[in-house]
Simulated assay, not measured.
Amino acid sequence: MANAFVARSLDEVRFWSRIMKEHSLFLRLGFRAEDTQLINEANQFYALFENIQNRSMAFTLDTDPQVIVRFNSEVHNAVSHIWVFKRKILGLILTCQLPGANNFPLLVDHTSREANYFRNRLDELNNGKLEPLPDAIIDENVFFLRIMADHAKFISHLLDPSERKLVDMANEFSQDFDQLLFQARDIDSMRPQSQTAPILTQFLDQNRVSVKSLRDFKKTASDLISACKIKSIIHPLLADHVFREAERFLFIIDMFEQHLTGTPVTMRDLEEH
């Protein structure tokens, strides 16, 4: 159990600290030149999470669990601060105090939801209170389906309007994931009666098909952006960022299905992800 706690903690911190670091960069790129205080704060968060990411790589599965508990608490504190920063930015945008800036309100809200998800996971790990499998399956899918729907919308709005085919494809993914999210919320509201193995298995299978398609679309878009073959204002790192989050969702779906079917989930699964 101690090794499982360490493996799960390191997996979460390594993945999400990189995401938080990149959020800091994306937000900074969306500020105006005169927003020097916000730019400085974003730079400080970038350095903070880069440090956390680097330190997390020095730990191994043999690290004392108590060391990881303390590290998780430190990371939780950092994530709480960047969550406050993101909500402050959202408030400034929605009250028209950053006219001409280039951060969509939904994008800022999106990044704050991911920060809240991360700190809640750290709380659960340190308190040893991870959700029961049926609840986790529904809650994780509700969370990530909305994230995927957001990504499709961001891609659509950041592509040049002349990229008509790609814009149409992104819009189709947005509609698909909106529908999947509505279905997930229906299953959520039917709890606990909806939490049967057949229903949850079908739920995961259906979501996997759409997530794989979106993941492949993101990979193609990322490659095209890196090769300067399409017109957009999408930063190459942002394209890779949303691709990695789709990969993360697929990993989580696979882990859930392994649990449902009784296939053991090994420490190697967590360490190699």
Rank of each mutant, 00 (worst) to 15 (best):
R121A: 07
L48T: 15
T95M: 03
F26W: 04
R164G: 07
L270H: 07
E131S: 14
R185H: 05
D123S: 12
L158H: 09
L181I: 02
S17A: 15
E41G: 10
I234S: 08
I187R: 02
F144N: 14
M267Q: 14
P65T: 09
R14C: 09
P198Y: 00
G91H: 04
G91Y: 02
L260H: 04
L181E: 14
F49G: 13
L106T: 13
F45I: 09
Q202W: 00
A170Q: 07
T266L: 12
F71M: 14
D205M: 06
V242C: 05
D178N: 11
R119W: 01
R268C: 06
R164H: 08
S9N: 07
L48Y: 03
E34F: 04
N72C: 14
Q175F: 03
I137A: 06
D176M: 10
T220V: 02
N120E: 15
L237W: 04
L158D: 10
P192A: 05
E124Y: 01
M57R: 15
V167I: 12
E114W: 00
H157V: 06
N40F: 01
K218I: 01
I39H: 15
T63F: 04
L181G: 06
V84L: 08
M1V: 07
K212W: 01
A2Q: 14
E245Y: 02
N77Y: 06
L122Q: 06
K21M: 14
Q183Y: 01
F203C: 06
E247C: 10
L106D: 12
R248I: 00
P99I: 10
L61N: 14
E272V: 13
T261L: 06
L130G: 02
S210L: 12
I147W: 01
N54V: 12
F251Y: 13
E140P: 00
S210H: 12
L90R: 08
T196N: 05
L38R: 13
E131H: 08
M190V: 00
V6N: 06
V211Y: 02
S226D: 09
A78N: 11
A7D: 12
Q183A: 08
G91I: 03
E114S: 03
D223A: 13
A170E: 04
H259R: 15
T220A: 04
A58P: 00
I225L: 05
I147V: 14
Q175D: 12
S73T: 14
F15D: 15
D11K: 15
V108H: 02
D62R: 12
F118V: 01
S56C: 10
P65A: 08
T36Q: 14
T111M: 08
Q97T: 08
V84N: 05
H273I: 02
